[in-house]
Computed example of a mutant assay.
Amino acid sequence: MKRIAVNELPDDPLAAAGLFHQHWLSHIEHQLEDALDVAITVPAADYKHREWRRAVTAGLARKHAPRRVNMVAGEGAALDATIAYLADAPGVTGQYLET
Rank of each mutant, 00 (worst) to 15 (best):
D46Y: 14
E33L: 13
L32I: 07
H30R: 13
A61Y: 06
R62F: 13
V42I: 15
R54N: 02
V38Y: 01
L60H: 04
R62G: 10
V42F: 08
E51S: 10
V38H: 04
A39E: 11
S26G: 01
I40H: 05
D37Y: 06
G59R: 11
E33G: 12
A35K: 15
P43T: 04
E51Q: 06
H23K: 15
V42P: 02
V56L: 03
A45F: 03
Y47D: 15
L32Q: 10
E29F: 03
E29G: 01
A55N: 13
A45M: 11
R53Q: 03
A58N: 04
R54S: 01
A55Y: 10
K48P: 02
R53V: 00
A58T: 04
H23Q: 15
E51M: 07
W52A: 05
G59T: 07
I40S: 03
K63M: 00
A35T: 12
V42K: 07
P43G: 10
L36V: 03
A45R: 12
A35S: 14
Y47W: 15
A44N: 12
T57K: 04
H49I: 01
Y47R: 15
L60R: 09
G59L: 10
K63I: 00
L32P: 10
R62H: 14
T57C: 02
W52C: 01
H27A: 09
K48S: 15
I40V: 14
P43V: 08
